[in-house]
């Protein structure tokens, strides 16, 4: 007799989420992902690691005509998630990933050369479908696009749409809904 279901916690969470999604019957019905805006008193990452994290996030989503990842507070929110939410296993995975990128010399490169390193890393890790990296990218994107800047300046978000319009006209300039 097992005391639990026998499935690892993350798989179970994923299954529950997909179960909710499927019974909701809506692809847009994924539970909204919440995030932390306040910097915690104590950081999870060391200052050196935090600098790497912030640089990678901002290379992924730079400031353009709208705010970038740093502007949106993604590194702080990421750190807060590590402190408050992540399991020890995920904490270790993300710390190792940041150390790997830092160890590759990201911050010692001139700023103009850094994006190429991150772009190559992204291509390699996605090709190999490295689960820790996929989760990392998902987190950075989630934290950005559900931040106030990402959801309302880069994309569009309405807390209370008030109605359902199943078939609206769009143009090439139409921005996606953040959620």
């Amino acid at each position: 007799m097992n005391s639990l279901s026998g499935l690892p916690a993350l798989d179970r969470r994923t299954l529950i989420r997909s179960a909710i999604l499927l019974v909701g019957g809506s692809v847009a019905g994924l539970p909204d992902i919440a995030l932390a805006a306040d910097a915690p008193a104590k950081r999870f990452f060391t200052p050196a690691q935090f600098a790497v994290l912030a640089e990678v996030a901002d290379i992924m989503i730079p400031r353009t005509d709208t705010p970038g990842a740093k502007d949106a507070g993604v590194p702080e929110a990421f750190d807060s998630l590590m402190t408050n939410w992540a399991s020890p296993q995920h904490q270790a995975q993300f710390r190792a990933l940041i150390d790997e990128i830092g160890g590759a010399g990201l911050l010692s490169l001139p700023a103009a050369e850094r994006p190429a390193l991150v772009r190559k890393l992204d291509a390699d890790k996605l090709k190999a479908w490295d689960p820790a990296y996929v989760r990392f990218k998902e987190l950075v994107l989630t934290l950005y696009y559900l931040s106030e800047a990402g959801a309302t300046k880069e994309l569009r978000y309405e807390l209370i749409p008030g109605k359902w319009e199943p078939w609206t006209e769009v143009t090439a300039d139409t921005r996606a809904w953040a959620a």
Binding site: L22, V23, G25, S26, V27, A28, G29, L30, I59, M60, I61, P62, T64, P115, V118, R119, D122, A123, L126, K127, V134, K137, E138, L141, Y145, L155, A176, W177, A178, A179
Partner: peptide
């Protein structure tokens, strides 16, 4: 049970690429 809806930014997770 299901739906046909347009993807949002979540598609970016599995899509290679970074930057502007």
């Amino acid at each position: 049970q299901g739906g046909v809806m347009r993807d949002n930014w979540r598609r970016g997770v599995s899509q290679p690429g970074v930057g502007a």
